[in-house]
Design a protein around this nucleic acid. Structure first.
Lengths: 298, 298
DNA sequence: TAAAAATACTCCATAGGTATTTTAT
DNA sequence: ATAAAATACCTATGGAGTATTTTTA
C-alpha cells in the first residue's frame, strides 16, 4: 500500500471520474486506473463500479475512503509537526548543570533564554558531573554545563572562567581586609564540599598550590550548607564568583586573592553527533555574553 | 513518503540499532539506512543521532514516531476493515421493492435472509418502478425487485411468476363461486391502482385480453386501499397471489380464473457492473426457493 | 581494532507516460 | 458514434541487494 494510492483513491471517490481524478492528481488516466486497480486487488474488494458513463463508489469503497482520508490527514499532520519541529529553536532541550553552578547561573541566563527563544522549552537537570556525563552519553540530556576538565569524548565550547574568592565569617581575622595572599591560606581551616563535587577537587587543587591543607573533618552536601558553615565560623572556603553575586547579605566576608587568580572554567558539553548543534552554539554564545556582563561589572 | 518507510522508522525507534531494525524489517542494513535518511531529508530534520556504538532518537524523532505509529495503526485498521468488508454477505445491501409487492413478499423473505446472512444489513426502499430504476441507475440502490418488463440496461434474474386472482366482495354475485371465466369479467366494475403502479398496467393488459373495461372513475393509491374499496363493494379487482396469502380475513372473495392464467413476473434487477453480484445471486436463489414453497402450498 | 553505519554499485520491480483498444451508451 | 475506462508497451525512478569504505569508541 502507498500513501500516493490512497490520495488517488480519495480524489476518485470525490469526483467519481477517472479522467478528472487523474487531472486533479496530475497523473495520466491509465496511471490512476492502474493504481486503483492494484489497491482493489490488495484490499481484496471492489472500490468502484465502472462503466463508460459513470463511476459509482461501492459500499465498501465508501467505508474505506473515510479510513483513507484519515490516514492522509495523519500524514499531513505528521508533515506539519515536522515543519514545526525542524525549527532549531523550538521543542525541548534537556540541559544538565552541576549543583555548584545551577543556583547562581540559571537565574541569570534562563530569563534571557526564554525571552530570546520563546518556542524552546528547557528542562533542567541538576546532578554531579559523573551523572551528567552518563546522562549526556546515553541521550537523556542534550547538553550539560560542567567545569573543565571532563574526560569523555564530548564536543564542547568554553563559556567563561569563573574566579574563586576567599570567603570567611564576619568574625574572622580577615574581616575588613580587602584581599588575601595565598600564603595566608595555610593557617586557615578550609571547608570543602562532599566527594563528587568538582568544586571540591578544584578547591583542593588551589590549596595545593597555596600549600594549604583542607579540613577533612566536616564536608557539606551543598554549597549553601557550606556557606552557612562558614558563616557560623566553622572555617573558611573558596567561593565561585557567581555564588558571590548571590551574596546580598553581609553575613559573609568575601575577598579576592592578592597574588593568585584561581578560577574554574565553565564549559558546555554535548555529544559529537548532537542534532541540536545550532541551538546549543547559540545558547553557548548567549551564556558567554550574559555572564561576561555580570563578571566584569561586579 | 511511504508507509514502508514509516514502519522502518518505528522499528528503528524501538531498537535504536540499524542492523537489528533491518533484520526485524527483513531488509538489509544499507536499505534501512538509506530509507531513514530519505525520510529525514523529506521531513527536513534529523530523526536519529548515529555513532558506531549507539543510535539515539532525537526529540523531533520521539515526537514524530508517535505520529508515524498512528498512521501505521490507521493503515492496519483500514486493512482490517477491508478484510471484513470483503465478505460478500456482510455490510449493507440497499434493496428496492415495488409497493404492490413489498408488504406481501418482504415478511416472507426478510426473516430468512437475516437468518441466512446475519452480517448483511438490508435497507429497503419502497418506490414505484420508475423511481427504483432511477435510484438503481445512479447507485442509490444495489438491486430492485420489480415486475418485468423494465426497459433499461440492467442485468436481472427472474425470481418467480405471481398469478393474478379475481377478487370481489362477499356481496358479489361471484361469492361462493370457485373460479371465474375471463368472459365473465367484461360486466364487472374493475378497480385499478393509480398511475405509475406497474400492477395497474398489468391489470389493464389482462382486461384487454378478457375484453373487459377497467373502471377509470376511482383509483387507489395503494393496494390495501384497493382491497378496502373492493371490500366495500365499489368494484372487483385482480389480486396478486402473494397479496392473497395475506388474506386472513374472509372480508374478500378471491378465486382463480378458469380459462386464463394471468400472472406477473417478479424479477431482481441490478447494474451490469454491480460489485454485489455474488450476494445478489444468492439472495435471488433464496427468494425463488422461499416463494416457490409458498405459491405451491396455497 | 572492531563494530556499526555510510557509501558505491548493480539490479529489478513498479509507477508513470503515450498510444491504442475495448466497452457501453 | 462517442466518451471513458482498460490494455499494451516502453521508460525511468527508486527500493533492495552485495561489497566495500568510513567512522569512532
Amino acid at each position: 500500500m502507498n500513501i500516493r494510492d490512497l490520495h488517488y483513491f480519495v480524489v476518485l471517490a470525490q469526483v467519481c471520474h477517472f479522467g478528472e481524478a487523474a487531472k486533479l492528481c496530475h497523473v495520466s488516466q491509465p496511471t490512476l486506473s492502474m493504481q486503483i486497480k492494484k489497491l482493489e486487488e490488495e484490499l481484496g474488494l471492489i472500490l468502484f463500479e465502472r462503466s463508460n458513463k459513470q463511476v459509482i463508489i461501492t459500499e465498501q469503497g465508501r467505508l474505506l475512503v473515510m479510513q483513507a482520508q484519515k490516514i492522509l490527514n495523519d500524514v499531513k499532520q505528521m508533515k506539519d509537526y515536522a515543519r514545526a519541529a525542524a525549527d532549531p529553536f523550538a521543542g525541548e532541550l534537556r540541559l544538565g548543570v552541576i549543583p555548584t553552578l545551577a543556583p547562581y547561573l540559571l537565574p541569570l541566563i534562563m530569563p534571557v533564554i526564554q525571552k530570546t527563544y520563546p518556542q524552546l522549552r528547557v528542562w533542567l537537570v541538576e546532578e554531579k558531573t559523573h551523572r551528567l556525563v552518563e546522562k549526556l552519553a546515553n541521550g537523556e540530556l542534550d547538553a550539560a554545563l560542567m567545569a573543565t576538565p571532563v574526560e569523555s569524548g564530548f564536543d564542547s565550547q568554553v563559556l567563561f572562567n569563573e574566579p574563586f574568592y576567599f570567603a570567611c565569617s564576619v568574625d574572622s581575622a580577615f574581616y575588613k581586609k580587602k584581599s588575601i595572599r595565598s600564603d595566608q591560606l595555610a593557617n586557615q581551616p578550609i571547608l570543602l564540599l562532599e566527594e563528587g563535587h568538582c568544586l571540591r577537587d578544584q578547591a583542593m587543587a588551589v590549596c595545593q598550590v597555596a600549600k594549604a591543607k583542607a579540613l577533612a573533618d566536616f564536608t557539606a552536601t551543598s554549597f549553601e550548607t557550606l556557606r552557612l558553615m562558614v558563616q557560623a565560623g566553622l572555617g573558611v572556603t573558596l567561593m565561585p564568583a557567581l555564588a558571590r553575586q548571590n551574596e546580598h547579605s553581609d553575613s559573609l566576608h568575601v575577598i579576592p586573592f592578592a597574588d593568585l587568580e584561581p578560577y574554574r572554567t565553565i564549559t558546555l558539553y554535548w555529544r559529537n553527533n548532537t542534532s541540536r548543534l545550532i541551538c546549543l552554539k547559540a545558547i553557548a554564545e548567549l551564556i558567554t555574553k550574559e555572564i561576561h556582563k555580570v563578571l566584569t561589572n561586579p
